[in-house]
Computed example of a mutant assay.
Amino acid sequence: MDMLERLARWRTFADDCLDGYPWEVEEFLMDVNSRSALQESMTASHEDSPVDHRVIAAELVAIDASVRAIFDIEAFPKMSRSEWWLRYVPSYAARDFCREFKSAYGVTIAARSKFDLDVDAMTQLSANGVAPADICLKVAEEQWYVTQRPALLFRACQRSLSIDRSARRALWSWATGKVSESDLRAALGK
């Protein structure tokens, strides 16, 4: 992975955190470690790379500032203060992440995320009798938060809709643009 790819991954992580980190603790730990890898690659390749380090450094400072604003819970005090991304965690995240983090590390994080809001709304639509395919299509048409990436949509549907393995495969194929709306309807039912 080159420096620009690492920077893009860190930017995505920052956006996820600002919206209330929707993934699991394992992904979180890999994401924060990606910041360390970015730091190392910037230091190691400063003179060898054709990439303009000033531009990357400026963008990194901006991304870091947005993340630092919400990374205000000191979860790992033995980590170096200079590697704040390894020492602190966000003050809020998705419910499942908060439960898992509390269980693993004994640290309480407030449950607040755009992901949970969408899951709750999708669950309510399902409880009101709206068909799973109609829920998926509504969410996509209205460009809800969970439609930003196929994996977010898939995760939200798993949590809010009662669908079997075959339907989940069709849902993933639809979310990644491999099957049509009519294929989704056929797989999930009208």
Rank of each mutant, 00 (worst) to 15 (best):
L29A: 12
C157G: 06
S66C: 06
A170W: 00
R165M: 15
L152C: 08
A44D: 08
I56M: 11
L161E: 01
A75V: 11
L171I: 09
R81F: 11
A62K: 15
S182V: 15
H46W: 14
R168G: 03
S80F: 10
A65G: 13
S34M: 07
C17S: 07
F154D: 02
S91L: 05
T12C: 09
A104D: 08
D48A: 14
D2P: 02
S91N: 10
E24N: 10
A58D: 13
S162Y: 14
R168E: 06
D15F: 05
S103Y: 11
L18Q: 09
M122I: 03
Y105V: 03
S80P: 03
K78G: 12
L86M: 06
R169N: 12
M79P: 04
C17L: 04
I73N: 05
I109H: 00
T147A: 07
M122P: 02
T147V: 09
T43G: 10
S66K: 11
L86D: 01
H53S: 14
F154P: 00
K138Y: 06
I56R: 08
Q143P: 07
Q148W: 08
T176G: 09
Q39L: 12
V119P: 01
F115P: 01
D118E: 09
E24D: 12
Q124F: 06
P77T: 10
R54M: 12
Y92R: 09
E59G: 13
Y105G: 03
R159F: 06
E181I: 15
D120E: 15
V146P: 02
A58H: 12
R54T: 13
G177P: 08
R6P: 01
S166I: 14
V32T: 02
C136E: 01
G20P: 02
V139I: 07
V32A: 00
A151G: 11
D15K: 12
A156D: 01
L153E: 00
P50W: 14
M30T: 08
H46T: 14
S182Y: 10
T12I: 10
L18N: 04
V179A: 07
V89Q: 00
S162E: 11
G20A: 11
D31C: 12
C17W: 00
V119N: 02
V89H: 00
S36F: 10
V119C: 02
A186Y: 05
H53Y: 11
Y21I: 02
E181S: 14
E5A: 10
A133F: 01
I109S: 00
